[in-house]
Simulated scan of single mutants.
Amino acid sequence: MSNTVSLRIKSPIDGYSKITDYEVVGRAGGKWEQQSPPQNAFDGDISTVYDDQAGGRCGIKMSEPQKITAFRFQSGAGYEERMPGCVFRVSNDGVNYTAVYTISSVKPNGEWDYVYLDDLDAGARELLENNSFTYFDFYGENYAPIAELDVYTNSEEESETCLAVTDDSGNELTSAGDAAAAAHINITVSVSSNDSGKELTMYAAQYDENGILISIDVFNKIKDGDKKETDIFPNCERIALYLWDADQAPVIDAIELN
């Protein structure tokens, strides 16, 4: 029997646990780095920055190895154009690092850039899914100040299976009108322990004012924490989201934004 549920809205990083037990590490020997040290990227103040100079880095050494499942960052105000090409890396000895994500573009200071496992290339995603790491850092060659960096692992809290719908800035969307105005939506999946072993498929269907289907996107092999994007048609009047298991049994059936 289909189970109709109401939409649960949450911020893009809900369902993850922020890593807080760490030591700030990085290079602080350069002229600009002495004035703007690595600690500035972890002080909760977007007006202070770590100035990477050339070949500088700032990051964290965790108290024990952790699986990195997401991170977010903000660029320094006025220096956003210097961020593309900078990378985020992982290590277990603080000497040998592996790059897992290269910045291609950033939002302006004051807005978070979110990176999830699904945003990584296949090799980096597999590396983080199957291994724990002690170090995570930001590395740049472009004199690119970074204002803030938060690193996340899986949440230990039990959560219900739900779909969160936001725009690119993380604003909650509760209606098809809001979604159409945003041009496209981000759908983040949070899977409870009851559904974590299932192979799930998500459908995002759009309907016009007459109830005629105008678009449907299908996302296969959905996992906890996956984030998917869907472009919204201007004449969309209703959006229906479905999450089904491999036997076509609804896990979440008929979440609607009207």
Rank of each mutant, 00 (worst) to 15 (best):
A28T: 13
D195P: 08
I232F: 13
T98F: 05
A240E: 13
C86K: 01
S17H: 12
W112V: 04
N3M: 05
E126G: 02
S47F: 07
C236E: 03
I232Y: 13
Y79G: 01
D224Q: 02
D231Y: 12
A176V: 01
Y101S: 08
T48I: 08
K227W: 02
G177F: 04
N186T: 09
G78E: 05
Y114P: 00
Q66V: 14
G170F: 05
T174C: 06
A70G: 09
E160M: 11
N235W: 04
G26C: 00
Y203R: 14
M62I: 12
V151S: 02
W112G: 06
Y79I: 00
T20G: 10
T20I: 15
D195G: 07
A254C: 09
A124E: 11
T20P: 04
E141Q: 13
G26S: 09
I103C: 02
V100R: 04
L128D: 10
E129Y: 05
A147H: 06
T166D: 02
G85H: 07
G29Q: 04
P108E: 14
G30L: 08
A77M: 08
E156S: 12
V25A: 10
S47T: 15
A77E: 11
L257H: 01
G211L: 02
T230E: 08
K221E: 12
A182H: 07
V90C: 09
D113G: 03
L163S: 01
E256F: 05
Y207S: 06
G44A: 04
S193W: 06
A254N: 10
Y16Q: 07
Q39W: 00
E23K: 15
V165G: 01
N194D: 15
V49I: 11
G30S: 14
I46Q: 12
G123T: 14
N130H: 14
E157Q: 10
G76N: 09
T166M: 06
A70D: 03
Y135I: 09
D118Y: 00
P38Q: 00
S192C: 12
T134A: 04
K18N: 05
Q74V: 06
V251G: 02
V165D: 02
V100M: 08
S91R: 11
E148T: 10
F42C: 05
D253M: 07
G76V: 10
D195A: 09
Y207P: 07
D195I: 04
K221D: 14
F88L: 10
Y242E: 12
E64K: 15
S11Q: 10
P65I: 01
T161D: 01
S63N: 14
T161P: 01
I252V: 15
L163Q: 06
E256Q: 06
S6P: 00
G55S: 04
Y203T: 11
V115R: 02
S215T: 09
L257C: 09
L243N: 05
A204R: 00
F42R: 01
L117F: 03
N194Q: 13
I214P: 00
D121S: 07
D21C: 03
I252H: 01
D43N: 15
G177N: 14
C236D: 00
E209P: 00
N142Q: 09
A254Y: 13
T20F: 07
I46R: 12
I185K: 08
L241F: 14
K223I: 00
M1V: 11
N92I: 09
T201W: 00
Q66I: 07
D226W: 05
N40F: 01
E23V: 14
T48S: 15
A240G: 02
